[in-house]
C-alpha cells in the first residue's frame, strides 16, 4: 500500500528543511558544555630576554674575573718588587710596608732581578715568616672572637652549637669563654646547645668539681631530656650526699603531675639512692 503522507513528505523535503539552526548557536552553547580552556600564553619575549640576560651575566662575570686576575697579576709584581729593597735598606725600614712599596714601585723590574742575591732572599724569607706568624696569631684571636660572637647568635642554633663544639675541641677555656658557656648551659633556648655547652664545661673537671657543677646545671633545667641526662650523672656520684637545691628540684619533679613517667622514675631512683 502506498503511504500518501510519506510520498508527500519525500516530495516536499526541501520545504520542511527550511528552518535551520542559526550558525551562531554552537558558539552560544559551547561555553556551557565545553569547559573553558585557558589558552597557553607563549611568551617568546621572556625566552629572548633570558638569553640576553644570561649572556650579559656571563659577560659581566667574565669581566669581573678578568679584572680580578689583572689585579692579582699586579699584586704579584708588587710582591716581586718588595723583595728588592731588602739588601739596600736597614731591617727597621723593611717592616714599613708603605715606604717599601713606594720605593719598590719606583724601581724598574728588570734592574731588580739583576741585583737580587741569596742573602736578600733569605732576609725576605725571614720577614715573610715573621709576618706569616703574626697573621696566624691574629687569625687565631679573630677565631676566638668569632666563637664568642657566634655564641651570641640568637637566630641560628646551629651557629651557637658549632661555636660550642669548636671551643670543646680547642680546650683550655678562657674565663670569658667559660662565662659565656655557663650562660648558654643554663639559658639557651635549644636543648641541644645547652647539652653541648654543659659537656664542654664538664670536660676535664675533677670528679668532685664535676659533680657539683652537674647538680648546679640540673637545678636550672626544665627540659626532661636534659633532666634525665643530668640525673644519670648525679646517680653516678661517689659521695652519698647531695646538695639541698638538688633534692628540692628532684622532689619538685616527683610531685609535678605533668612530669613524664620515665623522668619521674629516674628522679625516684636518684632520691632513693642516697
Amino acid at each position: 500500500m502506498r503511504d500518501n503522507l510519506k510520498d508527500f513528505v519525500n516530495a516536499n523535503r526541501d520545504a520542511f528543511d527550511r528552518k535551520e539552526p542559526s550558525a551562531d548557536l554552537w558558539n552560544k552553547i559551547r561555553p556551557q558544555v565545553v569547559p573553558q580552556v585557558e589558552e597557553k600564553k607563549i611568551k617568546p619575549l621572556w625566552r629572548w630576554a633570558s638569553i640576553a640576560a644570561a649572556t650579559l651575566l656571563v659577560g659581566t662575570a667574565a669581566f669581573v674575573i678578568f679584572n680580578q686576575e689583572k689585579k692579582d697579576d699586579r699584586m704579584d709584581r708588587v710582591a716581586v718588587w718588595k723583595s728588592s729593597p731588602v739588601q739596600q735598606k736597614e731591617p727597621e725600614e723593611m717592616l714599613r710596608p708603605s715606604q717599601q712599596e713606594i720605593v719598590a714601585e719606583a724601581e724598574q723590574k728588570e734592574s731588580i732581578r739583576s741585583i737580587q742575591t741569596m742573602t736578600s732572599k733569605q732576609k725576605t724569607h725571614l720577614v715573610a715568616n715573621r709576618t706569616a706568624q703574626k697573621i696566624a696569631v691574629e687569625r687565631e684571636e679573630e677565631h676566638e672572637k668569632d666563637y664568642m660572637q657566634m655564641l651570641q647568635d640568637s637566630v641560628w642554633a646551629s651557629t651557637r652549637l658549632a661555636a660550642v663544639l669548636a671551643l670543646q675541641k680547642q680546650g683550655n677555656l678562657k674565663k670569658d669563654e667559660t662565662r659565656a658557656l655557663e650562660k648558654i648551659a643554663v639559658s639557651d633556648e635549644s636543648s641541644n646547645v645547652r647539652m653541648a655547652a654543659i659537656e664542654t664545661l664538664l670536660d676535664g673537671m675533677t670528679p668532685e668539681v664535676r659533680q657539683q657543677k652537674v647538680q648546679d646545671f640540673f637545678v636550672a633545667q626544665n627540659d626532661p631530656t636534659l633532666q634525665v641526662e643530668l640525673m644519670q650523672m648525679i646517680a653516678q656520684r661517689d659521695e652519698p650526699e647531695m646538695k639541698n637545691s638538688t633534692k628540692d628540684k628532684l622532689n619538685a619533679i616527683v610531685e609535678d603531675p605533668f612530669t613524664l613517667k620515665f623522668v619521674k622514675e629516674q628522679a625516684y631512683a636518684v632520691l632513693l639512692q642516697q
Binding site: W156, A157, S158, L161, A162, S190, S191, N192, V193, D223, P224, T225, V228, L260, F262, V263
Partner: peptide, 9 residues
C-alpha cells in the same frame, strides 16, 4: 643539615 632534634619520649 645543620640539624638539631630533641625529643623527650
Amino acid at each position: 643539615g645543620p640539624l638539631s632534634v630533641k625529643v623527650a619520649q
